[in-house]
Design a protein around this nucleic acid. Structure first.
Lengths: 344, 344
DNA sequence: CTGTTAGCGCATTCAT
DNA sequence: ATGAATGCGCTAACAG
């Protein structure tokens, strides 16, 4: 093995071996034009031979900016929860921002100030908020982050009441789209197995279902509705509950694909034909949903684009903040896309 | 709205309002015992009223440590790829480390020095390597990170040749376990639809299959094997290829659950009974696999524990490096767990 | 074009 | 038990 911990080479070392001042090295490193090409080459040679790399920490400190974004996300198994979508990482990369992650585990206490303190202490310039719970504690926390600490926040969940701009999926539109699709297919008794009651996106999809049903003059009262947990268990239980409650129905709009999967499983066990007796549609276009039995119709969202937009918005807010301005940013609403398969 | 960007309060402000020196404030903040309780309270009062929080960036700079770990992971849709598992975040949190993420997108060029430079420039103290490709470029890069830059690396994929300790799933053991299970169930013609050929874990699972087959005196030549892509498409295509090639077989060991899903779909279309005509087993225990048709037997790995172990190992290596020692760390191999369901 | 002076916010000597 | 001086690695503002 070679020497384990060789001292880091600093700008000072480069300056010494190149025989110039620190400042000149700094200029070369930052690509300033105001340096003679002769010295530039000399400095560059020293940099290369010493293997110098500038210490971003020091640079961040003096410039008063960390070039870092905080990401607050759920640590659960929900798709779109724990998963960092590549749009965020790619766009952050492009803006020169690093990403600091803070996960909220399901069994953690509700997020309070201490929860984001670690991000704030590391001087993140902005925060991407990916938690979908409808909890007033969240709203208060977000407000404190933006107002007390002056750190901009962009939400990846639609939640007007929080008062920060968002880049989110049009969950309401998705609910409408899914339900209208079933109606167009001639279905009339369409039930909804929603996500958890306290989740923003679940509520929005539910609203969409109700809207589409009512505009078609079909029943969408609470008897046609049951809440699940985003998982197959909830879908299975919900399906059985609804059967017992209503006797029968001819279509299921499931809050997401996993819920639909569980519900379809229940239908199979009851000997029902899909889509003959009951049609199904989900939301997410989860990996594998095209190979369920039968392949599941679903609503897709462009996560990459949502992520990109969120980072762009945050970057603009940070920029404005540095300039001392307050910016009213338009939200970005990601359009749902219908994926037709055999289940409906 | 309140004032958008109030100047950050520093240790200096606290010292002024409390009427003490910077040093004393520093002591209070760091919980040193050597401070009179009277002054401590005065300082604490100033801290509270001003809302002071220490700037971790400055602290990191002077201490020469960033309290940050780099995470290099795949930006793909593979389960276990993009997903940061909560074991990592939880344990990092416990050690006081922040996580800096660097994703490798499938269409990115092979990782070179520039790929990890961003992490290194931000002075990460260690790197968690989650890329599973068997590429010599990776090995060379990892070696340069540890040797040239003196930054320890722990892999989350078993890959002895790289020469860094790992905390990984026992993919070989999983292959053996899955295959033996099928054999015990009386299956004899057991084919394997593997992951991509260049993936470490795919190769290990394949080896496990071959080992179990040969120890039972069953055929495990290349005609019983086909490579997939970790997705249902690969499973479907692989199943059809094997049918055409062999005529028939009575069990499929799929490289992962999604592959199994695609293969089961192909079997359904051919009118085969599962598990009557063909049994199936996968690996991953993906969300939903318990509701596939039929529910899929699979091998589970404890991701949380793997993550915890990896961070612990890295922390120890960092500690040793600071003390100038070289540490030979035992690897951690996560034991596979058989999940029995109806497909086998 | 280049060097000097200063300081980001904090912790680590050493004094007292 | 407290304070003063020093410096981490770098850049901003000014000189020359």
């Amino acid at each position: 093995m070679s020497s384990p911990s060789k001292r880091k080479v600093s700008i000072k070392d480069v300056a010494a071996t190149a025989g110039v001042s620190l400042q000149t090295v700094s200029r070369v490193v930052n690509g300033s034009e105001e340096v003679a090409s002769a010295t530039r080459e000399r400095v560059q040679a020293a940099i290369d031979s010493l293997g110098y790399r500038r210490n971003e920490l020091a640079r961040n400190l003096i410039q008063g900016r960390s070039r870092t974004l905080g990401v607050v996300c759920a640590g659960q198994d929900y798709l779109g929860g724990r998963q960092l979508n590549s749009g965020i990482t790619a766009e952050a990369e492009a803006f020169g921002y690093a990403l600091l992650i803070r996960e909220h585990q399901p069994d953690d206490p509700e997020p309070d100030d201490r929860f984001v303190q670690g991000l704030l202490d590391r001087q993140v310039e902005g925060i991407l908020w990916m938690l979908a719970e409808r909890h007033t504690a969240h709203e208060a926390l977000i407000r404190r982050i933006t107002e007390t600490h002056g750190v901009p926040v962009v939400a990846l969940v639609r939640s007007e009441s929080v008062g920060v701009p968002f880049s989110a999926f049009d969950n309401f539109g998705a609910g409408v789209m899914a339900t209208r699709h079933l109606i167009e297919r001639g279905r009339r008794r369409i039930v909804h197995i929603a996500g958890p009651e306290h989740a923003w996106d679940a509520q929005e999809r539910l609203r969409g279902w109700r809207h589409a049903m009512e505009e078609a003059g079909l029943p969408a009262d609470d008897s046609h509705l049951v809440f699940g947990n985003w998982g197959p268990e909830g879908g299975e239980a919900g399906f059985l509950t609804l059967r017992e409650r209503l006797g029968g129905f001819d279509a299921v709009f499931a809050g997401n694909d996993h819920t639909a999967l569980g519900a379809m499983s229940a239908a199979h066990k009851l000997g029902l034909q899909i889509p003959g007796d009951v049609a199904f549609i989900g939301v997410d276009d989860v990996k594998g949903s095209g190979w369920y039995v039968p392949p599941l119709s679903t609503i897709r969202r462009n996560r990459v684009e949502m992520g990109r937009q969120a980072v762009r918005m945050l970057a603009r807010l940070i920029e404005a903040g540095r300039a001392g301005q307050t910016l009213a940013l338009p939200d970005y609403l990601c359009a749902p896309e219908l994926i037709l398969r055999e289940s409906s």
